[in-house]
Simulated assay, not measured.
Amino acid sequence: MGSASRAVSCLCCPCKCLACGLLSCLCSILVSLAVVLGVVALILYFIFKPHMIAATVDSASLSQFALSASSTLSYDLNVTMTVRNPNTRVGLYYDDVQALALFSDQRFGYAPLDAFYQGTQASTQLSPGFRGTQLLQGDVTAAEFRQEQSAGNFAVDVDLNAKLRVKVWAFKVRGPKAKVTCKLSVPAPGAANASPFQPTVCKVWF
């Protein structure tokens, strides 16, 4: 009875049956395409085995870091860091590279850096410098500054932001945005009780 009803329906409205057939065919094609793309992506992953970039701050020094009564920070911070591409089959382009310096979660320094390319398993040394003045907000920040100055070391964050492009053989594709966060303990200028700077491994986010 059901088959007879469908046959009658198709005889009465052949366009409806054609549309249903095309829709079913399109769905099958889309599902097959998704499966193929998934398999290809899985194969490429196991072939290239992409790894997250690595970054380390090798040195950091403050020749000036003073907070005025009006909460204006005068600073001169120099940093040397190494960024490494651990991949054996993937090259990386770094575009729109920016270095930021923060104290108590407030940005006080900004340094644009040149774009660069890293071949497989290559390392690049970067040397962002931050100098100038910046108004800091809040009494808590001023209290934290005085406390850390007395302790001999300042907790300073240095971030590195970049847009990545991935090179696989002769092909270049847009990659994710990378953010490198480095939490540093930098000796206060002229502090006799300061602990020497220790190389610091950074966290990388995508």
Rank of each mutant, 00 (worst) to 15 (best):
P112Q: 05
L113P: 13
A115C: 10
A115D: 04
A115G: 14
F116E: 11
F116S: 03
Y117F: 15
Q118E: 15
Q118S: 07
Q118W: 05
T120I: 08
T120L: 07
Q121L: 10
Q121S: 12
A122P: 00
A122S: 09
T124Y: 01
T124W: 05
G129E: 07
G129N: 10
F130A: 05
R131E: 15
R131F: 11
R131M: 13
G132T: 05
G132E: 08
Q134C: 13
G138P: 04
G138R: 04
D139N: 14
T141D: 07
A142C: 03
A143W: 05
F145G: 02
R146D: 07
R146I: 00
Q147K: 15
Q147W: 11
E148Q: 08
Q149A: 14
Q149H: 07
Q149C: 02
S150T: 11
S150G: 00
S150L: 13
S150E: 13
A151H: 01
A151E: 13
F154W: 06
F154P: 01
V156E: 03
V156W: 05
V156K: 08
D157P: 00
D157F: 10
D159S: 13
D159M: 15
L160I: 12
N161I: 12
N161Q: 08
N161P: 00
A162T: 12
A162R: 04
A162M: 03
A162P: 05
L164A: 08
L164I: 05
L164P: 02
R165Y: 07
R165W: 12
V166M: 14
K167S: 06
V168F: 04
V168P: 11
W169E: 12
